[in-house]
Design a protein around this nucleic acid. Sequence first.
DNA 1: TTACCTTTGCTAACATCGTTAGGTAAATTT
DNA 2: AAATTTACCTAACGATGTTAGCAAAGGTAA
Lengths: 186, 186
Amino acid sequence: MRTNILAVAMQLVKEEGWQSLSIRKIADAIEYSVPVIYDHFENKEAILFELSMDGFRLLDRLLEKDKRKYADPEERLRAHAETYWNFAFKNPEYYQLMYGLGMPCSSPGKAKPEFNSFREHIAEAIEGIVKDNKSSDEETCFKIYAFWSVLHGLISIVMMRCSDIDDSQMNKKVMDDTVNAFIKNL
Amino acid sequence: MRTNILAVAMQLVKEEGWQSLSIRKIADAIEYSVPVIYDHFENKEAILFELSMDGFRLLDRLLEKDKRKYADPEERLRAHAETYWNFAFKNPEYYQLMYGLGMPCSSPGKAKPEFNSFREHIAEAIEGIVKDNKSSDEETCFKIYAFWSVLHGLISIVMMRCSDIDDSQMNKKVMDDTVNAFIKNL
DNA sequence: TTACCTTTGCTAACATCGTTAGGTAAATTT
DNA sequence: AAATTTACCTAACGATGTTAGCAAAGGTAA
């Protein structure tokens, strides 16, 4: 039942966007009355939170696949960037849910381990690349955030249609160029 | 009256966050009944849109000040980054409104000229820096987006509390470091 | 069988929201 | 003085998240 609620909710989000998701629509779709939903979830936010966790877990699985496929940290970092980008645009509902893009009740601050999965994956790759350098831990930590930020920033700007570059391949190219420049200067 | 509605709405947003802004609260605050608000604005989204435009105009004024103060494009670019960062954290309500962070009805895509003010300001500075280089227009355009992205990404991550760096000075330092690295490689 | 209790589900309501239809009374115009 | 426009309000509609309270069904113990 609980999983059914989540599945139906996610389908509704994919069909009509999270803006129009309502408890009553979920109740209709699972063919039960409204209060049964509250037997399984404390409130609507809890449902959205659980869905966002699904998103984090899905992304994590993809990143784990990269990890198994690429031993070289530089290749792996590139793969992670590509995976992150593709995940965001293949699952925009998840991405918006996970990072509160245009979402109400997006539960920021509730830092669960899943939340930092991407940061930890790129951290491992970046540390692998810079480990022979003389960079301090602090510098490395900053670089991890910088890398994440540029990806998240680009994705956000494109997803919120703040970019005036229409061509999606072009936007991807901006990312590739930026990732290249970033890696070159590690 | 129109300006009064906007002023009161903005104050309510600052006090209780945009999540809890409602037409009825605005009506109460201006001591009129609900429908008078609809004599001046088509709907709630129009009010939020107008407020976000105020945000863009405020940011633009700050960037113009930078422009007058710094003739050297590199200094100016640094100043723009600083201004953008400070604007975001001194006026988080505006920033969230402008870039749809955790907002419903955030009107993405409605590209008005004000919307691109920041991009145009940093574009001017970056073009000033790279103009002796052999970089193509496309490369320059990409760099502009990359610069904007890293700033927006960092701000978003910190503002949504996805960063586990608590110290706000530390977060600022990540930005400074990243801006330095970016400029060095223009 | 009868009495109890837990589970499962529902109806109906509360408060709040954005939005609008329709009316009143004053101010202005003709 | 009559007509019209303006300024404003009450009251409602439909939708939202959430909850109180109840009914029926099934299992358990006597």
